[in-house]
Design a protein around this nucleic acid. Structure first.
Length: 432
RNA sequence: GGCUCCAUCAUCUAAUGGUUAGGAUUCAAGGUUUUCAUCCUUGCCAUAGGGGUUCGAAUCCCCUUGGAGUCACCA
């Protein structure tokens, strides 16, 4: 079983989507199920409806999964297992206040050393614990030995007990912390491989330590994907528009192109332009680069353009508000200057909008327009052109520029004859 | 600062001890186009630095430098 575990606290991030895609690919390759786990254990940060939004995006990107579970539904297991650890002295109650811990953290920072829990509550007697009326958290006992694991991308990893620390597993309100809930849930769902972002790398030894303490012996495999960086070389954040899947979609990028790009960057690929199903055939975690990759929107535009060119005309026409292969073909003519459906839609809308002509061509445009309002239908552009010349006596630059303005609302653009081929059935509407 | 990871053109990458260090994107120039773009052709641009090992190093080892992630009763 593999899992994708987003938290419903904001818009789906492209880094998250990439994690989902890779989990999906590996689940297909290994012939295992994919589980979606909504990590909603911090109810204060949850945003209503974000879980549904995430699932909709997964559908849109053709990521199939078996089940959706909510982390909060496992609360009784989190509590039961925390009690189990307490009873076996693998965990202890900690009465240290937030203030005290914050001060200790600050001091550690000032002294330029790492903050570690000072073990002041590690060995409290039963009565010391029971007689204390103050709120308390539950901490796990520090590991006895180094925690090691093999990451499928990064290689062998090793962490000292000192660096894993005796961290909090249950908060004062007796809700699990992320690491505890995550470790337990992965265990309960019998997860075999965890693919997640590199930002989780330092959580992994903690989660392994939790399961070790619980006596769970099955080894979970891990693959930590390098982060996607913005132009400044920092992790992409909410502040970067392009980090939001929703934003990319609204800008007119296709799910198939976004998928293509997210698989392509930081990876050694067999081909540059492909579909998700192709990638399932050859994708290999071993080919993922160990270093982070910068997000390059120019490259994404290029890939989006290629996907648009390969798209069925009728399907493309729907993206620009029609259901007609001719309009799809017309849109494809503009792919020489556009790369997103949003840009194409503007071009197509301009074709049907009232025409705006510069002073230089305004007279010719109007004269030709009047003629075309009552013109017969011409199958071929040459006949159409001849008709216009014969009826108006306009020629040369005035003729071509004016026709171009009438047919496309622009002085520049694709071949006039090509535009005509795909707009001749709409001519009356276009010059109206 | 501690821990962990990383290091080839501006960007994504190829070259798994022997290549004039290749491709794609970007950018620039020329050709083409009664238009701009496309397209075609060409060009610019990289092995972070220093030591080893070796007949031979982008590739293996060490040091330096640089970058990233992470260090919550968030996930």
């Amino acid at each position: 079983m593999l899992r994708f575990a987003p938290s419903p606290t904001g818009d789906m991030h492209i880094g998250n989507l990439r994690v989902a895609i890779f989990n999906y690919i590996l689940s297909k390759q290994r012939n295992e199920e994919l589980l979606i786990r909504i990590e909603d254990s911090d109810s204060a940060r949850n945003i209503e409806g974000k879980d549904q939004e995430i699932l909709q995006i997964l559908d849109l990107f053709n990521i199939e999964y078996k089940d959706v579970i909510y982390q909060s539904a496992n609360l009784r297991f989190h509590r039961a297992l925390a009690i189990d650890l307490l009873q076996r002295k693998m965990a202890f109650n900690c009465f240290c206040s937030s203030d005290k811990l914050d001060n200790a953290r600050e001091l550690a920072k000032k002294e330029r050393r790492a903050f570690r829990y000072d073990d002041s509550c590690t060995h409290l007697s039963a009565s010391q614990s029971i007689d204390n009326p103050n709120p308390f958290t539950i901490r796990i006992q520090r590991a006895k030995n180094r925690v090691t694991f093999k990451d499928l991308i990064k290689g062998d990893m090793s962490f000292e007990p000192e660096d894993i620390d005796s961290f909090i597993i249950m908060r004062a309100q007796k809700l699990p912390t992320y690491n505890f809930a995550c470790a337990v849930d992965d265990m309960l769902s019998d997860i075999s491989l965890v693919i997640r972002g590199e930002d989780h790398l330092s959580n992994t030894p903690k989660q392994i330590h939790i399961r070790d303490s619980l006596g769970y012996e099955k080894r979970v495999e891990y693959a930590h994907l390098p982060i996607i960086l913005n132009d400044d070389g920092k992790k992409m954040s909410k502040r970067d528009d392009a980090s939001s899947v929703k934003w990319l979609l609204s800008e007119g990028f296709l799910p198939s192109a976004i998928t293509n790009y997210l698989i392509l960057i930081g990876n050694r690929c067999k081909e540059e332009i492909f579909e998700l199903d192709d990638a399932i055939e050859w994708f290999d975690l071993n080919n993922i680069s160990k270093s982070p990759a910068k997000f390059d929107i120019d490259m994404l535009r290029h890939i989006n353009n290629q996907h648009l060119r390969a798209m069925q005309s009728i399907e493309l026409s729907r993206y620009v508000g029609f259901a007609d292969a001719d309009i799809g073909e017309l849109a494809k003519l503009f792919l020489d200057e556009c790369s997103t459906t949003k840009e194409l839609k503007l071009k197509i809308e301009a074709v049907f909008a009232p025409k705006v002509a510069s002073e230089e061509f305004a007279l010719s445009v109007e004269k030709i327009r009047q003629v075309l309002l009552d013109a017969p239908y011409f199958e071929e552009f040459d006949e159409f052109k001849k008709f216009v010349i014969d009826s108006t006596s306009i020629k040369g630059k005035q003729l071509f520029k004016s026709l171009r303005i009438l047919l496309s609302n622009s002085e520049h653009g694709p071949e006039l004859s090509d535009i005509y081929t795909h707009t001749k059935n709409y001519l009356k509407e276009i010059v109206k």
